[in-house]
């Protein structure tokens, strides 16, 4: 077992994973430095989501190692990984995935409430983040009464409210139009830089990847040096005739 480099907050070596036999990751290694924004960039089906889920401890890789701050994530028990996710990580899905029965601020405050924070503290923190993300005036509305872009910003606020050590964002701008997309990604990166939050961002959008400090291109579950235009757009030459 090789000790990870000192300046990496998150570090993975030759991760291999297959979903019930369908290969997803094939020997991916990477290191994430503290406070940086790392984009995992690749077309659909290239294993971005699986890589993020392995890094965040939701999945245990079949081969390879994941280290977070000198502790091995791949050998932890399910309960310890759950606690790690709750206390140190946060996650943004492609869809907002809000709890429909709770109002906007309650959704944003939910991670704090789940950690046992007092009601008042959780509310203040959630309202602050909603104001920063420019949706303070929808705080009392339920998710059904909001626009998709507003819902996604609530999901971002929910991920930031605990000021996590590492924020995993799996295509956070997928359901949005371009203007909303730019705003969401800008607020996310600004918040991460001002609060020194490490961000691992999966994306298939070249513009989004360009905002990151570093980019890890991924194709068919392998890390490549760079993405060719045909791979990025999924237009590889097809020799089959049907």
């Amino acid at each position: 077992m090789v000790a990870p480099p000192d300046n990496d907050v998150l570090w993975a070596r030759s991760l291999t994973y297959s979903h019930n036999g369908s290969p997803a990751l094939d020997g991916v290694s990477l290191g994430v430095r503290e406070g940086e924004i790392l984009a995992v960039y690749g077309p659909r089906g290239s294993g971005k989501t699986t890589l993020l889920r392995c890094l965040s401890g939701q999945l245990v890789p079949q081969e390879g190692e994941v280290w977070f701050n000198d502790s091995p994530v791949h050998t932890m028990s399910a309960v310890v990984r759950e606690r790690l996710r709750r206390d140190r990580f946060s996650w943004i899905d492609p869809a907002p995935a809000l709890v429909p029965e709770l109002s906007a601020w309650e959704n944003a405050a939910l991670p704090l409430l789940l950690r046992g924070a007092p009601h008042r503290v959780a509310k203040t923190a959630a309202m602050e983040w909603l104001d920063r993300l420019d949706i303070g005036d929808c705080a009392r509305k339920r998710p059904y009464a909001l626009l998709q872009a507003q819902r996604q910003r609530i999901a971002v606020a929910r991920a930031l409210v605990t000021t996590p050590a590492v924020l995993f964002a799996d295509e956070p701008t997928a359901p949005l139009h371009r203007t909303d997309r730019a705003q969401v990604i800008r607020t996310l990166t600004t918040a991460a830089r001002t609060h020194n939050i490490t961000v691992v961002l999966a994306t298939l959008d070249e513009e989004v990847a360009a905002l990151a400090d570093r980019t890890v291109p991924l194709v068919d579950g392998r890390r490549v040096s760079s993405l060719g235009p045909s791979e990025a757009e999924g237009q590889a030459a097809c020799s089959l005739s049907v």
Binding site: V79, R85, R86, V99
Partner: peptide
């Protein structure tokens, strides 16, 4: 079921 999955992602343990 979708809400429960979301809560699990947020780190809500099964006991809660």
């Amino acid at each position: 079921v979708p809400t429960t999955t979301t809560l699990h992602h947020l780190g809500a343990h099964a006991g809660l």
